[in-house]
Lab assay of single mutants.
Amino acid sequence: VQTVGQWLESIGLPQYENHLMANGFDNVQFMGSNVMEDQDLLEIGILNSGHRQRILQAIQLL
Rank of each mutant, 00 (worst) to 15 (best):
L41F: 05
D38Q: 06
Q6P: 02
L47T: 15
A58W: 01
L56H: 05
G12R: 04
M31P: 07
I46F: 00
N34G: 13
V35C: 11
S49V: 11
D26Y: 08
E43M: 10
N18D: 12
N23G: 10
G12L: 01
L41G: 01
N23V: 10
Q15L: 02
I59Q: 11
L61H: 14
Q6G: 07
N27T: 14
Q53W: 08
M21V: 15
S10Q: 11
N48W: 00
N34Y: 14
N27I: 10
N18G: 12
I59H: 14
V35T: 14
L61M: 11
V35P: 13
Q29R: 12
T3N: 07
I55T: 03
V4W: 04
D26V: 12
L20S: 02
L42R: 12
L47H: 14
Q29V: 10
L13D: 00
I55F: 03
N48C: 07
N27R: 09
W7A: 02
I44M: 14
D26G: 09
M31K: 06
Q39T: 11
V1A: 06
A22K: 14
Q57R: 11
P14F: 04
G24A: 05
Q2M: 14
Q15E: 09
Q2C: 09
G32N: 12
T3V: 02
V28N: 05
L61W: 10
Q6L: 05
M21Y: 06
Y16M: 02
P14V: 06
D26A: 10
T3H: 05
S49E: 14
V1L: 15
Q2W: 10
Q39G: 11
W7R: 04
V28W: 09
S10P: 03
G12K: 04
Q53F: 09
M31T: 08
M36W: 11
L13G: 01
G32W: 11
M21F: 05
G32V: 15
N18P: 11
D38T: 05
T3I: 02
Q29S: 12
N34I: 15
Q39L: 08
D26M: 11
Q6M: 11
Q39K: 15
Q2K: 14
P14M: 05
E37Q: 15
Q57G: 11
R54V: 08
Q15V: 01
Q39H: 12
G50R: 10
Q15W: 02
F25C: 08
H51V: 03
Q29E: 15
I11K: 00
E9S: 10
G5Q: 10
N23A: 15
F25P: 00
Q57H: 11
L8V: 01
G32Q: 14
F25D: 03
N23I: 13
L8I: 01
H19Q: 13
L20C: 05
L13E: 02
M21W: 05
I59R: 08
S33Q: 14
R54H: 06
L20R: 00
F30C: 15
G45A: 01
G12D: 06
Q39C: 10
M36E: 07
G50A: 04
D40H: 09
L56F: 07
Y16H: 02
V28T: 10
V1S: 09
L20P: 01
Q53M: 11
D38S: 07
Q39A: 14
M31F: 14
I11T: 04
N48V: 06
I11H: 03
F25L: 11
Y16N: 03
I55A: 03
G5K: 15
V35H: 12
L42K: 13
N48A: 05
D26F: 08
G24D: 04
Q6C: 08
A58K: 06
E9I: 08
Y16L: 01
G45W: 04
G50D: 14
L13H: 00
E17M: 07
D40T: 14
I46R: 01
R54W: 03
F30I: 15
I59P: 02
Q29D: 14
M21H: 07
I55G: 01
S33G: 11
H51I: 02
A58G: 12
V28Q: 05
L13M: 06
V4K: 00
M31V: 12
R52E: 02
L56I: 09
G32L: 14
S33K: 14
I55V: 05
T3D: 07
G45E: 03
L13F: 05
M36V: 15
R52T: 00
L41P: 02
F30Q: 15
G12M: 03
E43F: 05
T3L: 04
Q53H: 11
N18H: 13
N48M: 04
I59W: 14
N34R: 15
N48Q: 07
Q39E: 12
L13Y: 01
L20M: 14
L56V: 07
L8S: 01
G12P: 03
Q57M: 09
V4G: 03
E9L: 10
L56M: 12
R54M: 07
A58P: 05
Q29K: 13
N18Y: 12
Q57D: 14
S33V: 12
S49I: 10
L62C: 07
L20Q: 02
L56G: 04
N34F: 12
G24P: 02
Q15M: 07
D40E: 08
Q15H: 04
D38A: 06
V35Q: 13
V4N: 00
L41C: 00
I44E: 01
W7Q: 02
